[in-house]
Amino acid sequence: MSTSSAAAVKFSLEVITLPVSDVERALRFYIDQVGFALDVDYAPNDAFRVVQLTPPGSSCWIQIGNGLADAPAGSLRNVYLVVTDLAAARSRLLERGVPVGEIRHKVPTDAWGGGFAPGLDPGRRDYASLAAFSDPDGNGWVLQERGYRSA
């Protein structure tokens, strides 16, 4: 493959499949509590169902359902949802009954060595502040702040 043709190729992440044990429970969690929009709920037979949901403002969807994946329910980890105001996003999720962990920030941010301190990054720098939550099956999500100053 030549470098000129490789440069013209575009890769776009559009769907992440989440392994869940109970589609209805997961559907209610992601719509009613997290606030994702329902795009598709298609079940042509009892063995197959695909439910597609979109996080607000995202161009990547999640899929839950039956017959989609062989992974054990709850085995997906560290799917990042990027938000412009982490404190507001965490507060909204807590109000909707989602148990979100405490906010933490990377220290030191500029030469990060793997440590965290409690609370928001004092400079509200991009990618520095995080909080985590899980769905009812244990699939893990990370909220990460980016673009706070431009919001």
Results as ranks from 00 to 15, higher is better:
Met1Phe: 10
Ser4Leu: 07
Val9Tyr: 11
Ser12Thr: 15
Leu13Thr: 14
Leu13Lys: 13
Val15Thr: 08
Ile16Lys: 09
Ile16Ala: 15
Ile16Glu: 14
Ile16Thr: 14
Thr17Trp: 14
Leu18Gln: 06
Val20Met: 07
Glu24Met: 04
Glu24Ser: 14
Phe29Thr: 10
Val34Arg: 00
Val34Lys: 00
Ala37Leu: 08
Ala37Lys: 10
Asp39Asn: 06
Asp39Cys: 08
Asp41Lys: 03
Asp41Ser: 14
Pro44Gly: 04
Pro44Leu: 10
Pro44Asn: 05
Asn45Trp: 03
Phe48Lys: 06
Val50Lys: 13
Leu53Asn: 02
Leu53Arg: 01
Thr54Tyr: 15
Gly57Lys: 01
Cys60Arg: 07
Ile62Asn: 12
Ile64Cys: 12
Gly65Thr: 00
Gly65Ile: 00
Leu68Tyr: 02
Ala69Glu: 04
Ala69Thr: 04
Ala71Trp: 06
Ala71Arg: 01
Pro72Phe: 02
Pro72Val: 09
Ala73Ser: 07
Gly74Gln: 06
Ser75Phe: 02
Ser75Ala: 09
Arg77Thr: 05
Arg77Ser: 06
Asn78Arg: 01
Val79Ser: 06
Leu81Trp: 06
Leu81Glu: 04
Leu81Ala: 06
Val82Thr: 13
Val82His: 08
Asp85Tyr: 02
Leu86Lys: 01
Ala88Gly: 02
Ala88Lys: 07
Ala88Leu: 11
Ala89Thr: 13
Arg90Asp: 01
Ser91Gly: 11
Leu93Ala: 11
Glu95Gly: 00
Arg96Ile: 01
Ile103Ala: 04
Arg104Cys: 10
His105Ser: 11
His105Ile: 12
Lys106Leu: 12
Lys106Glu: 15
Val107Asn: 09
Val107Gln: 11
Pro108Val: 00
Pro108Lys: 05
Thr109Cys: 15
Ala111Met: 08
Ala111Pro: 15
Phe116Ile: 03
Ala117Lys: 05
Pro118Asn: 02
Gly119Gln: 10
Pro122Gln: 13
Arg124Phe: 11
Tyr127Ile: 01
Tyr127Ser: 04
Ser129Glu: 02
Leu130Tyr: 04
Leu130Lys: 03
Ala131Tyr: 12
Phe133Cys: 05
Ser134Glu: 13
Gly138Asp: 05
Val142Ile: 11
Leu143Tyr: 02
Glu145His: 01
Glu145Trp: 03
Arg146His: 11
Gly147Asp: 14
Tyr148Glu: 08
Tyr148Asp: 05
Tyr148Cys: 00
